[in-house]
Lab assay of single mutants.
Amino acid sequence: MISNAKIARINELAAKAKAGVITEEEKAEQQKLRQEYLK
Rank of each mutant, 00 (worst) to 15 (best):
E12M: 07
A19S: 08
Y37P: 03
L38F: 11
A28Q: 12
K16L: 11
S3I: 10
Y37E: 06
L33N: 01
T23R: 03
L13N: 00
G20L: 03
V21R: 09
A28H: 09
K32L: 14
I10E: 02
A15L: 13
N11P: 00
V21Q: 11
Y37N: 06
E24W: 06
R9W: 02
Q31R: 14
S3E: 09
R34L: 15
I10N: 01
E29W: 03
L33G: 01
Y37A: 08
E26R: 00
A5H: 11
I10D: 02
I22L: 14
S3H: 08
A17P: 00
A5L: 10
A8M: 14
V21T: 15
Y37V: 09
K6T: 13
T23F: 01
E24N: 10
Q35C: 15
E24F: 05
R9E: 01
E12R: 04
V21F: 07
G20W: 01
A5W: 06
Q35V: 07
A8V: 09
E36D: 08
Q30G: 04
E24K: 08
A15Q: 11
S3M: 08
K18H: 09
A8E: 08
A5T: 12
L38R: 11
A28D: 11
K16M: 05
Q30F: 15
K27G: 03
L38K: 10
N4F: 08
E12F: 06
K39M: 14
L13A: 01
M1E: 10
T23H: 01
A15I: 09
V21P: 04
L38I: 10
I2D: 08
K6V: 15
K6R: 09
L33S: 02
Q35G: 06
Q30P: 00
E36G: 04
K27F: 07
A17R: 10
S3D: 09
A8Q: 12
A17W: 07
E25D: 10
A8G: 06
E26N: 00
K39V: 11
K18P: 00
E29T: 02
R9K: 03
V21H: 08
K16T: 01
L38P: 04
L13Y: 02
E12V: 06
L38W: 12
E24I: 10
I2H: 08
N4A: 15
I7N: 04
A17C: 14
K18I: 11
A28T: 10
R34Q: 12
E29S: 02
N11R: 15
I22C: 00
K6H: 11
E36P: 03
A17L: 08
I10T: 03
A17S: 09
R9M: 02
M1Q: 12
I7L: 15
K39S: 14
K18A: 14
N4S: 13
I10A: 05
L38N: 12
E36W: 13
I7Y: 05
A5K: 09
Y37M: 12
K27R: 12
E26K: 00
R9Q: 02
S3W: 04
N4M: 15
E12N: 04
I7S: 06
T23Y: 01
S3P: 10
T23P: 00
A14T: 07
L33C: 01
Y37G: 06
A8K: 13
E26M: 01
N4W: 07
L13F: 02
E26S: 00
Q31K: 12
K27W: 08
R34D: 05
Q31G: 05
A17Q: 11
R34I: 15
R34G: 04
I22H: 00
A15G: 05
A15V: 08
K32E: 09
I10K: 03
E25S: 09
K32V: 11
N4G: 14
V21A: 07
K6Y: 08
E36Y: 07
I2P: 09
E25G: 05
S3L: 07
A19N: 11
R9N: 00
N4K: 15
K6A: 12
Q35Y: 11
K39W: 14
L38H: 11
Q35W: 14
A19F: 07
Q30R: 11
A5M: 09
L33T: 01
K27T: 06
E25Y: 05
A28Y: 09
K16Q: 02
